[in-house]
Nucleic acid binder design. Structure first.
Lengths: 212, 212, 212, 212
DNA sequence: CATGAATGAGTGTTCATTCAT
DNA sequence: AATGAATGAACACTCATTCAT
């Protein structure tokens, strides 16, 4: 027979993430979670020490996922020596679609935003993920893109700022509040494309000269 | 005799704003508020119908303050015919210092960010203030700056995005979480100056050519 | 100028009686009363010592009204030597219309019914008014009606019971709960007439025989 | 070992009924109930959704009990073809002793009387039980008693009124307020017997004729 | 006469958590 | 692995009342 019963612990985590990201940790009761999971409140305490433990468990699994990204990317980078405009755009879009708009990741970041002011662990994680790590990761990529001659040899910090600020802007404007509908996804994607093209005009090495 | 007793209603509002912005509406109890104000819990209900009423009262006063800005600005604009780079920078900095970094306004926006997912009124107000109204206000200003020959006659939308995205970025990175220390203020100010100069290089009309 | 302002104390009493009779003493707050009267809560304490004092003041004025009835009636009785069937019916109806259905009296008895189990003063007054005094008063009347030859010389206690039980029944069935509409008034009146005629068939001295 | 722990839910219902019938729903606090039951306040909410839920649960169980009566009676009726005066009196007394004076039922009706003006559900139930259903039930019985030749073939409605009005009277006079002592029980029983005999003199078919 | 401001005690209810089963 | 039953602490809110003005 197939597995019919889903792993309850995993189910609790999923439901909790969903609720935490929508109402905030402290506004979600164990009752709320159990209601959606379909178990009694006391049962949670078989799987988790307490409510905080659910939150921390979520943080841990998110950290794991997030910290895997740059390493994966480094592996890919090492294989590649030339980058086309299309490839660059593709990578930017996949960061948006496969990461920031990914159901779990998106919910997670929303949860962090709500908890950043209450919970110092959340605040730290939020800043690491959305700013510190993101920026340093991008710096590495941009330096590499300069090295392989795709981007001009400008100040990388300016470039990163020019690239990333609008991404953060789009994220907060469209992806933090409310449901992420297909319509919103399309809108954000389109704005991202416009932004990347705008960005490349300024920073991409002029290939026509190279081709000459 | 001098006034010794502060207006209790105002005091409640101040304390509430402070706590709401730090812990989120639902994590702040009437007990918390009263403890800091120095009154008994039941006394709050003389001044406000209920907890939600405090929140709405805060929203109202914030709305009033915010909607006064563009009108004040319009008055100033009408008196001016030429703008120097210093003046432009000064205006940008004053928006940062006198608005986004203003204790009340800053706390208020933080509160809205925390409540945007729970409270639709908060979500709407947040988007109006930080995106819709801000963008349309800036569009007006930039169009005027183009008209008076300070900025190049580029697509205004792109210009607004180029200008505003980094502001939003700085706001979320440095001004939303944690205490706003003098050190952070200085850091943000410096980054803003860099950003504005970067922006002007691209969009300011080259006066030397004009003078020729 | 004429009196425009009604006597506040009287106004409080009226509103209180209305609310007490509909929701019960303990379910009516000073706030409720003041809201309807149009004064602030603290103002009540100028006119009354406390909430209980309002109740007692109501009881007093009701007692005064009620205890005046038998005396008034005794005066009337002493002037009359013969009674017609119509006159008897008229008196029965006037007790219903001018007393049990009178807005104030009705509200008052309803209030007593609600408070009889909580407040011993109310319980006592309720039983005095609706049973003890009513029965003894009726006994006096029926004895007099026997003496003047209008009613047969039966056991007065049985007669009183036969007469009064249906009145109490009608009162509790139609006049205690809900609004007393004109329709209900008519219905009760009709049932009372039927009852009185039924009663007189059994107990009235057959005048035709006497006249023979 | 024997069961020592009583069913808590049932215990709460019993205590609540007792208190509601004596002080009225809104004057009884959850604290009062829990104090008597011997549990903490929060424990009530494991068994009942809220205070109102206790009330409704009581109403339901009372409704069940009450609506079972006529059906039980119908079964008995179908087996019997002759009725003695003693049997009639016995039934009347058992309605009094086993229903109106039954601890639970009595408390319940008292509760309804107190709540009739506040709670429309209570008002409806009160009128159904004490008037509408009671009257129609009695009509059925009296019609049957006429058919089997125990009661004279008079207008049934008059008969019902003559029978039931004094019962309602006795109920409100002796059984609604205050403790129901053995003394009161005896008094009411005696008055009921007197009333039934009085009633039978008027309405019972004269058996001496039949015996001839 | 009336009110603005405050308060202590209490109300119904929710919460995270415990623990025996 | 789950649940029935309970609980202490907290919660938003209401109440009758007081008192200086």
């Amino acid at each position: 027979m197939n597995k019919i019963k889903v792993d309850t612990k995993q189910h609790i985590l999923e439901v909790s993430l969903d609720l935490f990201s929508r109402k905030g940790y402290s506004s979600v009761s164990i009752r709320d979670i159990c209601g959606k999971v379909g178990i009694k409140e006391s049962s949670v305490y078989y799987h988790f020490k307490n409510k905080q433990d659910i939150f921390e468990s979520l943080c841990q699994s998110f950290t794991d996922v997030t910290y895997a990204i740059p390493q994966n990317f480094a592996v890919e980078m090492s294989k590649v020596t030339t980058v086309s405009e299309e490839a660059f755009l593709f990578v930017c879009q996949s960061f948006l679609n496969d990461y920031l708009m990914d159901d779990k990741v998106n919910k997670f970041i929303r949860m962090l935003i709500l908890e950043q002011s209450t919970n110092s662990e959340a605040a730290e994680l939020y800043h690491k993920v959305l700013f510190d790590e993101a920026l340093s990761g991008q710096r590495v990529i941009f330096e590499w893109l300069v090295k392989i001659g795709f981007l001009k040899d400008n100040a990388v910090d300016s470039m990163v700022m020019d690239y990333y600020a609008p991404v953060v802007y789009l994220f907060h404007r469209y992806l933090v509040a409310g449901e992420i509908t297909e319509q919103i996804k399309a809108e954000v994607n389109q704005q991202l494309i416009k932004h990347v093209q705008h960005f490349l005009i300024k920073y991409k090495v002029d290939n026509q000269n190279q081709e000459c």
